[in-house]
Design a protein around this nucleic acid. Structure first.
Lengths: 332, 332
DNA sequence: TTGAAAGCGCTAACAG
DNA sequence: CTGTTAGCGCTTTCAA
């Protein structure tokens, strides 16, 4: 492999010192027009490109942000990656992305190996135990957690407005005249799904309606999960007129189950989803859903990191909340 | 920011030279058990982690592969990213990913800035003009093009078996007894879509059937595109019994258009898609489609790059073909 | 307006 | 078995 041309080659050929070459590149001190032109010409001729690695090493800055997600293949992770890049590219930062399959070991391993290669990390998924975060906090590396609820010492948070979006979905259904509203949620008692359910309950209460516990069922986040849960709901003596599903895929399963019993959506039951997946606009009826602007999550995370990098004194832990937006289509 | 602990700190505290520390880390030369233990203990105490950047600089190797795609947000790009990571992580390589929106300027800019930061690049999308590739090839950086048909000096290629998958889809329809088979393809005369259409024609010819040009129509790769094209096809005096769509989204539009005319799928017309998107299994009827194993594309690219990095002599340009696989569901 | 030289943190000859 | 030292390619004092 031909040796890459370095700053010394340019200096030699232009008959100046490396210092001067460096300065025509950085404009950090005046260089006579004549010298500058000569150097520029040589740079051109040699097709010289400064070695970023060496630069980073000097500057103690890598111009790279790490994004660690459970799976880049899922639409949320991918959008976040995109938003992150959107935010940091103008500042000449790159994004390193890694998928962990939510495995702790992999997460820790990747985190370790990345620590000295990046200027900040955006972490999404399970790795939120303080212990796992420790190395990056220790390293004084800007850290943003995605989807966690509260920031803490050494890390910021960007999260969806889960409570509000649950309430928003509920209010939409309320406005359409529905009174018995059910929820199919993911089988967890904490995190975003739980907060959405709370929002749903509060919206009901606010409207002076009872929150019937029988109307909150949990199901795996799959098509079949949605179908079974919906079937159960439809078998209720006093079946709900509308159901909010924790995910579009679940909603699609629910719509299928309704159709299977001769119920039409939204005439007989209204169905809402969460996420606004590609499929949401493709199925029949088109899904009314709460879009989670995941790209915004990524963008916000990127901006947060950039700020942290720039600030001299570590400020207060910060929290950015991204609201969900109602996308009204045909299913509710 | 507290100064990071370096190898010198460890050496000092352990009362040995940096060389020794380096060697207990790398095991590249024997170190007495006693010294080793002492050093290890200090490393632990100080929570020392070698600076990867400095390592890279010394080794002239960054342990990073760049992936440049039009949009990481689209399922193909994301899967490729995933496959790439799968392939290179065992070798301790990271992935830098960048989306270009298929804009030449962005692509060139990113490419330039990445050149000195990565050990190889995987490039997908439009940037395939020799001129744009030049900097990478010049830099003797392993380069893999995704979706390009033929490799060349300085770059390899991993591509789908486009001709074959067109033929495969056609044969599937032939086997189901269809004779008049139409195609809705993307509006380009080259690349993967064109090669698939050729495969379709050849399969027809091989079966002793005429390839009616009226049955090959082009449409934008959108739901509506598919719907309009399908409508046109259904208006033909002798309408086709089956249609192969260049993308699942198009197929979904086509199914909708068929339904709109009271035609049922697959009873009245069979419809096939390409891509096996998430939505393919979610719509009704579930789409029969050609899955493009994009993760495999990424994996293959990763392996190729790794090989190139390891090899001393630049070998022949290589080409890896990933077959598509028929996923039979309900629409054909 | 320009240069010499000291590192950034690490590895690997070369020397004991 | 261990240490001294010369860089990797760049930026930036310090000095002219």
């Amino acid at each position: 492999m031909r040796r890459r041309v370095g700053i010394t080659d340019v200096a030699a050929k232009a008959g100046v010192s490396v210092t001067t070459v460096s300065h025509v590149l950085s404009s950090r001190r005046p260089v006579s027009q004549a010298t500058r032109n000569r150097v520029l010409k040589v740079i051109e001729e040699l097709d010289y490109r400064p070695n970023e690695l060496a630069r980073s090493m000097r500057a103690q800055r890598t111009f790279t942000i790490a994004l660690i997600v459970p799976d880049i293949t899922d639409p949320f992770g991918a959008s976040v990656a995109r938003g992150l890049q959107d935010a940091v590219r103008p500042a000449s930062y790159h994004c390193l992305v890694a998928s962990t399959d939510a495995e702790r070991d992999v997460e820790r391993d990747i985190l370790h190996r990345l620590l000295t290669r990046v200027d900040g990390v955006v972490l999404s998924g399970s790795g939120n135990t303080p212990e796992e975060l420790e190395p990056v906090i220790d390293a004084r590396l800007p850290l943003v957690l995605l989807g966690a609820d509260t920031p803490g010492p050494g890390f910021d948070v960007v999260t969806g407005a889960d409570h509000d979006s649950g309430a928003l979905a509920t209010k939409h259904l309320l406005e359409r005249g529905h009174r018995r509203i059910a929820v199919i949620t993911a089988p967890t008692d904490f995190g975003a799904p739980a907060r959405r359910v709370e929002g749903y309950r509060d919206a009901l209460t606010e409207a002076g309606l009872p929150a019937d516990p029988a109307l909150v069922v949990s199901a795996p986040v799959t098509r079949d999960g949605g179908a079974y849960a919906m079937a159960a709901l439809m078998d209720l003596p006093d079946r709900p007129e509308a159901v909010i599903c924790g995910d579009d895929v679940v909603a699609i399963g629910a719509v299928g189950a309704a159709a299977g019993r001769g119920l039409s959506v939204p005439a007989d039951v209204a169905v809402m989803g969460f996420g606004d997946h590609e499929a949401a606009a493709l199925v029949t009826p088109k899904l009314t859903t709460m879009a989670l602007p995941s790209r915004e999550h990524g963008r916000a995370a990127g901006e947060l990191i950039l700020e942290r990098i720039r600030e001299t004194e570590p400020g207060e832990p910060r929290r950015i909340v991204i609201p969900a937006v109602l996308v009204q289509r045909d299913s509710a």
